[in-house]
C-alpha cells in the first residue's frame, strides 16, 4: 500500500521532524490545561495505533481492546498500593506480562476462526473484566481503586510522548519495513493464499495480537498513574474501545499515520464538545454516526485521501458506484 516515490520522501521527513520538535517543546509552549489535552491526545494516538496493528494490518477487529488497557491500569494500581508498594516503573513490565498471558489465552483459540468469532470473544472478554472488577474486593469493586498521587504534568506528558513515539516506531519498523509486516498484510488480504505460501498465519496473528494488547497495557499503566484513580467503567468501558475504533477508521485502517490523524482529531473534538456542553450522551451518538459515515463514504479514512494517486481514479469511480448505492 505504501509504495513511496523517492521524491516525496524529504518533505515528509521534514514535516515529521517539525512535529517531533513541537511535541518535544510542548510543555514550554502551552499552559497546564492544554498540556493535559496534549497528553491525552498522545495517549489516544498511541492507543489507536495499537488497535490498528491487529485491526488494520491483520484485518481482525478487536471489540474488547479496552480489556488490555484496563489490565495495564489495574496491575499498576494494584502493585503500587499497600501490600506491594512497588515503584511505578516496576509495575509496567508486570502489567505487560499479565496482558500478554491473557492475550494468548483469548487469541490462540479464536484467531483460528472467522473474524466475527474473534470480535465476539474479545468483546465478551472486556465485559467479563468489567463485571469481574466490579464484583471483586481486591480491585476495589465498583468504587474503584486509587493510586499514590504524583502531580507532575510534565512527567506524564513526556511519558505518553515517549511511549507513543516508540509505538509508532515499532509499528513502522514491523509493519512497513519488515518481512513480518508483509506476512501480516498477506494474511489480511487473502488468508488461504498466505497459508499456501508457507506463512504460519495462526502464529503471525497471535504475535500481532499480543503486541497490540501489550502496547495498550503500557498506556493503561501510565493513564492510571496520571489520573490517580480508576474504576471498572473508566478503564474497561466499552466507550474506550468505541473511541479507538472510530479513530482508526476515521484516520485510515491499516495505515501508519491514519491512527495518529484520527486519534488527535477525534480527541480534540471530544475535548471541545466537553468544554462547551459538558459530559454528554450526545458524544456517543456522534461516535456512532462517525463510524457509520466513515464506513459508507470514507472506507480508507483521512489518510486514504492522501495516499490515493491518479492511477487509482478508476478504482475510486468503481467504489463510488458501489458505495454510492449505499445511499439507497
Amino acid at each position: 500500500m505504501a509504495a513511496q516515490p523517492m521524491k516525496s520522501r524529504w518533505p515528509g521527513l521534514l514535516l515529521l521532524a517539525v512535529i517531533l520538535v513541537v511535541l518535544a517543546l510542548m510543555p514550554l509552549l502551552v499552559n497546564n490545561y492544554w498540556l493535559r489535552v496534549a497528553t491525552g491526545a498522545l495517549m489516544w494516538a498511541g492507543l489507536a495505533c495499537s488497535w490498528n496493528m491487529l485491526g488494520g494490518y491483520a484485518g481482525y477487529i478487536n471489540f474488547g481492546h479496552s480489556a488490555f488497557f484496563g489490565l495495564g491500569a489495574y496491575v499498576t494500581a494494584f502493585l503500587m498500593n499497600d501490600p506491594f508498594g512497588l515503584p511505578f516503573l516496576a509495575t509496567i513490565p508486570a502489567g505487560m506480562m499479565v496482558t500478554a498471558v491473557f492475550a494468548v489465552i483469548i487469541g490462540a483459540p479464536t484467531l483460528r476462526l472467522r473474524g466475527a468469532y474473534f470480535a465476539i470473544a474479545t468483546w465478551a472478554f472486556a465485559e467479563v473484566l468489567i463485571q469481574f472488577a466490579s464484583a471483586m474486593d481486591f480491585t476495589g469493586g465498583i468504587g474503584g481503586i486509587g493510586l499514590p498521587p504524583y502531580l507532575n504534568e510534565r512527567f506524564f506528558y513526556y511519558a505518553m510522548f515517549g511511549t507513543a513515539a516508540l509505538t509508532y516506531l515499532v509499528a513502522w519498523a514491523l509493519f512497513e519495513r519488515s518481512r513480518f509486516g508483509l506476512k501480516v498484510k498477506a494474511l489480511r488480504d487473502h488468508e488461504p493464499a498466505a497459508e499456501a505460501m508457507g506463512i504460519n498465519t495462526a502464529l503471525v496473528k497471535l504475535q500481532t495480537f499480543v503486541l497490540s494488547a501489550v502496547t495498550a497495557s503500557v498506556f493503561g499503566a501510565i493513564f492510571a498513574y496520571w489520573v490517580t484513580f480508576i474504576n471498572p467503567k473508566s478503564v474497561f468501558g466499552g466507550d474506550i474501545t468505541d473511541q479507538m475504533v472510530v479513530m482508526v477508521l476515521l484516520g485510515g485502517l491499516g495505515t501508519l499515520w491514519g491512527p495518529a490523524i484520527g486519534g488527535v482529531t477525534l480527541f480534540v473534538v471530544n475535548r471541545l464538545i466537553w468544554m462547551h456542553w459538558g459530559d454528554t450522551a450526545f458524544y456517543i451518538a456522534i461516535l456512532g454516526a462517525a463510524i457509520v459515515l466513515v464506513v459508507l463514504f470514507l472506507p480508507n479514512g483521512i489518510a486514504g485521501l492522501f495516499v490515493r494517486r491518479k492511477a487509482n481514479a478508476l478504482e475510486k469511480v468503481a467504489e463510488k458506484l458501489i458505495g454510492g448505492g449505499g445511499e439507497r
Binding site: 485491526g55 450522551a281 463510524i291
Partner: peptide, 20 residues
C-alpha cells in the same frame, strides 16, 4: 480489503448511534 469487518463496524456504529 475485508468487507466482512467493514460490515461489522457498520452495525457497531449503528448500535452506538442508536444508544447515543
Amino acid at each position: 480489503a475485508r468487507p466482512e469487518l467493514m460490515a461489522l463496524a457498520l452495525t457497531f456504529g449503528l448500535f452506538t448511534l442508536l444508544r447515543g
